[in-house]
Write a protein that binds this DNA or RNA. Structure first.
Lengths: 214, 214
DNA sequence: ACTATGTTGAACTCATCAGTTCAAATTCAT
DNA sequence: ATGAATTTGAACTGATGAGTTCAACATAGT
């Protein structure tokens, strides 16, 4: 709300980026309807007409900000999944690796922007079905495919027994994030890393009970 | 929006109930901010001042409607859990019973009001932390306790091997509802019963892989 | 320096909506 | 029937906010 700080930057710089970042911040904080374009302009240290020049109206601003944020988040997750060990030394190494994957995945949802995405998606899915499709049906599927691929390779190397990798990937995600909404009160409270790690370890444990090689 | 129908009922009847039901309907459809008190009045076939007489302002209307709806939903779930078999005939009967429990649980979230709760809770958790606490931290915990009790009794009767019933209950919930947000696009699309049943059966299957008696 | 382009602030329009007021109408209990 | 309590419609106030306009201004490329 308060411009407050270091002299309003003029001229043509990375206004567009600043606007989109500010939009995510303000939409996440206030929700779509309660977020005012003026507040976003202030947060971005930009004049209101600049927003309309770059991004049309409030609706399109919302769409663009959400989709770009989702793309970035998805890129991060996929990159993380790429570089993971396929053939751990033994059962304990496997458990450690799965915990590490799980931590990376959870860490993405846990960030402020991550919760912003979740909350806004939930809240506005009915009013912006196209945004939901772009973010979840598209990005969510890609992440699940990639995760299924990693799990399948672990199974192939003889560490897991997985009849249906896609299903196992969905259940892995569900198990490691089972406690998060409750623990963080839907993202409104901070969660201690230690607590989160225990919750994730629990999820991995159940997953291994179900899918570890007999 | 449209009054349309059978002559506006006057006098003192169940106005309060009608208002709260209409509030849930409209809040669920439009979201808190976009829902107008006039729209709720129209939906309830009631004059606007009547709402203010019964329930004060918009905020209190929201709080009351959410909390009462949550209480009713919780009562239904707990009642369902009460009447469930504790000692199935064998492994296949156990699986059938778990599928039945799971269906009941999912069916509550799946109703229009159920999704309304979820969506509104998510969207407004930051602005109405007290509502979140009343609904989730309170009701969610009770349901999880009850479910943990059922699972513990099944374990006690020798059908399951469960180290930590509370944890198992959380993971059971997570597994049987893993696919629902994706399948229903966060409640904005209808899901065929058959698809839902398969998704639930998958969750129960993974649960049994993890916790069935060896 | 000169110019095209992008940016700014500020004021403005128009719509929506929460909450209020009040006199007329309706219902219920007796 | 009568009177107390409640409901109703309709008009009103005040606030908030989306989107626009425009003259002044800053910046980049030439």
């Amino acid at each position: 709300m308060t411009p407050s700080a270091p002299a309003p930057t003029r001229g043509r710089i990375d206004k567009r980026r600043a606007i989109l970042d500010a939009a995510i911040t303000v939409f996440a904080r206030d929700g779509y309807a309660q977020a005012s374009v003026d507040a976003i302009a202030a947060e971005a240290r930009v004049a209101k007409p600049t927003i309309y020049n770059h991004l049309g109206g409030k609706e399109n601003l919302f769409r663009t900000a959400m989709v770009e944020a989702a793309e970035e988040s998805r890129r991060k997750v996929l990159a993380t999944l790429e570089g993971f060990p396929t053939d751990p030394a033994g059962p304990e190494a496997l458990r450690t690796d799965l915990n590490a994957i799980a931590w990376q995945l959870v860490d993405c949802m846990r960030s402020a922007a991550g919760w912003a995405m979740s909350r806004l998606l939930y809240a506005e899915a009915a009013r912006f079905p196209d945004v939901y499709d772009a973010v979840q049906a598209e990005g969510g599927r890609q992440v699940n495919d990639a995760l299924a691929g990693r799990l399948a390779r672990l199974a192939n190397a003889g560490h897991l027994e997985i009849p249906d990798p896609l299903r196992a990937a969905r259940h892995f995600m569900a198990l490691i994030s089972a406690d998060i909404p409750g623990l963080s009160a839907l993202g409104t409270r901070a969660v201690a890393d230690k607590v989160l790690r225990e919750s994730i370890a629990d999820g991995v444990d159940t997953f291994l009970r179900a899918f570890a090689k007999a």
